[in-house]
Design a protein around this nucleic acid. Structure first.
Length: 508
RNA sequence: GGGCCGUUAGCUCAGCUGGCAGAGCAGCUGACUCUUAAUCAGCGGGUCCGGAGUUCGAUCCUCCGACGGCCCA
């Protein structure tokens, strides 16, 4: 190793404060203390201690002192000459610790007073008391170093507000912004409750491949990777759909999967290249059953998190108790743009509508009726953002629903719905197309688009066709965007605030 | 992809018309054994995101680039 490689690549960047902390760490070592200490067995959580002392907050303290052993990160430090207060933070809360020279001894106190910084992890053995000002406090008999922190933490008043740094250094964000921690506790609770609910409904949770030999199950550009041994390219999945329906063919009647999808697309407050989706499939059921399940699940989650089915979101209050409003895709288009069905199917009319609104028409794609793209564009443009209270939009056109079964009444529309809440698509469900020949025809239409340059159109999956030939029972299936659901339930307007590590451009 | 805005001390932010770079917190030194945004006195700390240009002189003006935010596509 060269001399250059031996040097700490960060040493040139040390700020004055970092140097000071490194020197303190060295002094700890010299005093025989390990700045990166040992496990701290038998410690009590701060919430546990709080619970235990609750009975004594109003009455007096008991005769025998209450002893405790807690550990955490120092987030506030108030030093006096021969004593100091520190506020300790663990995963369950904050607690004040009081350290006096005459309790821990003069030498020990001098070392603590010199070497402790905000940000350090310590363990404290002590006895509980209440200060003059009424603060429940643990008076230290012994302080144990657990881990030295070499960087100053952000300011105690404002915390860390720089959005970029909050996402890039989420570990700091989580330390200093308790409301951020809370969002992720609630996210975990949503996931837990969703699973519990689905399990209770008789679904089994399954895991299907994240690496696909070909992209499928959605319209999106994939990420490509390479398997060295097989010598083939693999695609990070854009949807688990085709695998889950193979499982219904295989005889599972109710399955769900909660996992990541990857789409090689841009970022927005509602899009991250990897995002979490729950897809579920119910044999012998209908889209109507899916909608009822969704309403019930969402209400259940809202009540679990908020104690009521009405949840705040931005300037709105969203009522998540069903039944939700239902509108038809084409009726909404006709009403919004005041068109009859004939004019709504006229490309020229639709293009003129776009021009009037100074919108650029989407590109023409082979293998797909252009009018369907235009209609969808107009729908997204003027209607989606107005759907604030939960609304099922039903009757999507066949042309933009390649895996959905056509409606009995009208072959050009499908038994498909999307759920919008707060102007955002949150779920998409339909009656699965289970006629293998019809599905193959749809795949070949997509293939035409693909060959003419539509990078979102997937190639035909002939093994999936074979599975349909074996026989997929009548099945209804749905995907729910979990990140967006968590946004709704935690009142966060950016997907990045419900993802622990949102995708960022690399630094430098 | 386009438009607008932002990037200044570890953090949060000021910085007027282009003229020596500022505050609070944090840090260091000293005082202080019940504070909790502890207090008091003093001190140190800067690649003003990077590069180029204009200018006697650029944190400030112009151009290019990086990263981020918002809006649009």
């Amino acid at each position: 190793m060269s001399e250059e490689e031996n040097q700490n690549p960060r040493s040139a960047e040390f700020s004055e404060q970092e140097r000071v902390r490194r020197e303190k760490r060295d002094r700890l070592l010299q005093a025989g203390k390990n700045p990166y200490g040992d496990p701290f067995p038998g410690r009590e959580t701060i919430s546990g201690l709080r619970e235990r002392i609750t009975p004594f907050l109003c009455g007096g303290l008991p005769e025998t002192p209450i002893e405790s052993r807690i550990a955490g990160r120092i987030v506030l430090l108030r030093r006096f000459g021969k004593a100091f207060f520190a506020t300790l933070l663990d995963a369950t809360g904050r607690f004040q610790v009081y350290v006096r020279q005459d309790r821990v001894g003069e030498g020990e106190y001098a070392l603590l007073s010199d070497a402790l910084d905000i940000g350090d992890h310590i363990g404290v053995d002590g006895t509980f008391f209440i200060t003059k000002t009424g603060e429940p406090t643990l008076e230290a008999l012994k302080v144990t170093f657990l881990a030295k922190s070499l960087h100053p933490l952000p300011e105690k008043w404002h915390g860390l507000t720089d959005i970029e740094q909050r996402y890039r250094q989420r570990y700091i964000d989580l330390i200093v912004n308790p409301e951020v921690r809370d969002v992720f506790y609630r996210r975990a609770r949503v996931l837990q409750r969703v699973r519990k609910y689905m399990d209770g409904e008789g679904f089994i949770e399954v895991e299907t491949p994240m690496m696909h030999p070909a992209p499928g199950g959605a319209l999106a550009r994939p990420f490509v990777t390479h398997h060295n041994t097989l010598g083939v390219d693999l695609y990070l999945r854009i949807a688990p759909e085709l695998y889950l329906k193979r499982l219904i063919v295989g005889g599972f009647e109710k399955v769900y999967e909660i996992n990541r999808n990857f789409r090689n697309e841009g970022f927005s407050p509602r899009h991250n290249p990897e995002f979490t989706m729950m897809e579920f499939y119910m044999a012998y059921h209908s889209p109507e059953d899916l909608m009822i399940l969704t309403e019930t699940l969402f209400e259940h989650l809202a009540v679990d998190l908020h104690g009521t089915s009405r949840v705040p979101f931005g300037e709105h209050e969203i009522e998540l108790k069903g039944p939700y409003r239902r509108i038809s895709y084409f009726e909404a288009l006709r009403d919004t743009y005041t068109l009859d069905q004939v004019r709504l199917s006229d490309e020229k009319v639709l293009i003129r509508l776009l021009e009037e609104r100074k919108l650029q028409a989407p590109p023409r794609r082979a293998g797909k009726p252009y009018v369907a793209d235009l209609q969808n564009f107009l729908f997204e443009e003027a209607i989606e953002k107005t759907l604030i209270q939960p609304t099922f939009v039903t009757g999507y056109p066949r042309a933009i629903s390649p895996l959905a079964r056509s409606s009995k009444e009208d072959l050009e529309i499908t038994d498909r719905f999307e759920l919008f809440v707060a102007g955002v698509e949150i779920a998409n469900g339909f009656m699965e197309l289970n006629d293998p020949d019809e599905q193959l025809t749809r795949f070949m239409e997509q293939q035409k688009s693909r060959l003419s340059g539509d990078l979102e159109a997937p190639p035909p999956d002939l093994d999936y066709i074979r599975a349909l030939e074996i026989g997929l029972p009548p099945t209804a299936g749905e995907g729910i965007g979990i990140d967006r659901l968590v946004m709704l339930l935690t009142n966060q307007t950016s997907i990045r605030d419900v993802l622990l590590f949102p995708q960022m451009r690399p630094e430098q």
